[in-house]
Design a protein around this nucleic acid. Structure first.
Length: 374
DNA sequence: TCTGGGGTCCTAGGACCC
DNA sequence: TCTGGGGTCCTAGGACCC
């Protein structure tokens, strides 16, 4: 059978920082946006296990974290460094298996063929040791008969452990877990499941299939399968291409100044154009998202007639979309904007990009050279 | 008490075509 | 004067992930 070995880096951003600043080790520390003296609008991105003992959590608003006390070491995020570190981890995994797949900046999985779990387990420990010894980074490892189950095992293994779910153990392992522990079940689905009396995965078996499907849609099938100890047999995922590239920013104070909004969009597009060229993609769809002070969000998108890698046309489209969002009715007063975001979508590889030719040939199957823009 | 920035995937309705 | 059954494409919104 094929096992999935799933790696989840522990407190990844913070571990990256500790790698280059060893004095951080063992101290309560967080990687977080600027607290601005308790007035910041960001969140905590990563908290050390020592900081967690004091109540710090990732995704916690910095204002709330600020109130917990300032003796914690507060580190501003350095995403380029975390991305570079992530590439080092992936390079190491790809040496062990070319089928290694990355799922986020700090998660990845590789396949392992073998009847009994012991081989996969030995490989998982070897990977864990190699990443710790060569890169100085801790990670948790989960092993299971599907990527989803291996991921759930890695959650259970945190921090720094290794957990194996064998095919015969699936129902027992998942049965007592809260539904929220299943990837894909978020706050809304948790609430909807609660409304039909399902709090743990095992509770699904007490609810008739159609009622469960009415409550949570297609997730119902996945949850019932898990509760019965079954899982989807899926082919190992292919290497995937990005589908969109975007940028967003939250203002330190809400604004309805059209000049400031347009300036921000122009800055986004300059950055995005560089990324498109560097990575070798053209786009066709422009999406503008605006979040207002009350957190309500609107989005408008428009597709160009052809793919392009230049963002000049996108700026015109984006400003039109901005007007449509902000002034649906000219008689309406302007609503202050909290966050603005711009995404370029419907990406396709662009031959004029600076991507090196070997990776380009691999991604296009090598069978045909994509045409340049018309 | 507020809630970042980067993404993916799904649904649903309407336009349009055969 | 009353209209089906496919299909694809586009757009808006929302859930979810790290």
């Amino acid at each position: 059978m094929r096992w999935a070995i799933y790696l989840d880096m522990d407190a990844f951003y913070l571990s990256c920082e500790a790698r280059r600043r060893p004095e951080i080790r063992g101290r309560p520390a967080v990687v977080a946006h600027d607290p601005a003296g308790g007035k910041g609008r960001g969140v905590v991105l990563s908290a050390s296990y020592e900081a967690r003992k004091h109540g710090f959590r990732s995704a916690m608003p910095v204002r709330e974290a600020w109130r917990l006390g300032q003796e914690v070491l507060w580190i501003p995020p350095d995403f380029p460094y975390y991305e570079a570190t992530s590439r080092e981890v992936m390079a190491l995994l790809r040496q062990r298996s070319p089928a290694a797949r990355q799922f986020s900046i700090d998660e990845a999985a590789l396949p392992w063929d073998g009847e009994d779990a012991s081989g996969a387990e030995a490989e998982g420990r070897a990977i864990q040791d190699e990443i710790r010894n060569r890169l100085g980074l801790p990670c948790s490892v989960g092993i299971g008969p599907s990527i989803l189950l291996a991921k759930m095992a890695s959650d259970r293994a945190k921090p720094g452990g290794l957990v194996v779910i064998s095919p015969g153990d699936v129902a027992e392992f998942v049965g007592s877990l809260p539904v929220r522990a299943v990837p894909g079940v978020g706050a809304v689905t948790e609430r909807d499941l609660g409304a039909v009396g399902v709090r743990r995965v095992g509770d699904c078996l007490a609810v008739p299939g159609p009622a469960l499907r009415r409550a949570v849609g297609p997730l119902a099938g996945l949850l019932r399968d898990l509760a019965r100890g079954r899982w989807e047999e899926e082919p190992w995922p292919e290497e995937s291409e990005p589908k969109s590239l975007g940028a967003m920013s939250t203002f330190s104070e809400d604004t309805s100044d059209p000049e400031e909004l347009t300036r921000t969009l122009r800055r986004f597009l300059d950055d995005l154009e560089r990324t498109l060229k560097h990575q070798g993609y053209a786009y066709r769809t422009v999406t503008l998202r605006v979040r207002f002070a009350d957190f309500h969000a609107l989005q408008r998108s428009r597709s160009l007639p052809h793919h392009t890698h230049e963002t000049r046309s996108a700026l015109g489209v984006a400003t039109t979309l901005l007007r449509e969002i902000l002034h649906p009715d000219p008689a309406h007063p302007k609503r202050p904007v909290r966050t603005v975001g711009l995404t370029l979508g419907d990406l396709k590889p662009w031959a004029g990009g600076q991507k090196d030719l070997s990776s380009f040939a691999r991604e296009t199957d090598g069978s045909q050279a994509p045409l340049p823009d018309p």
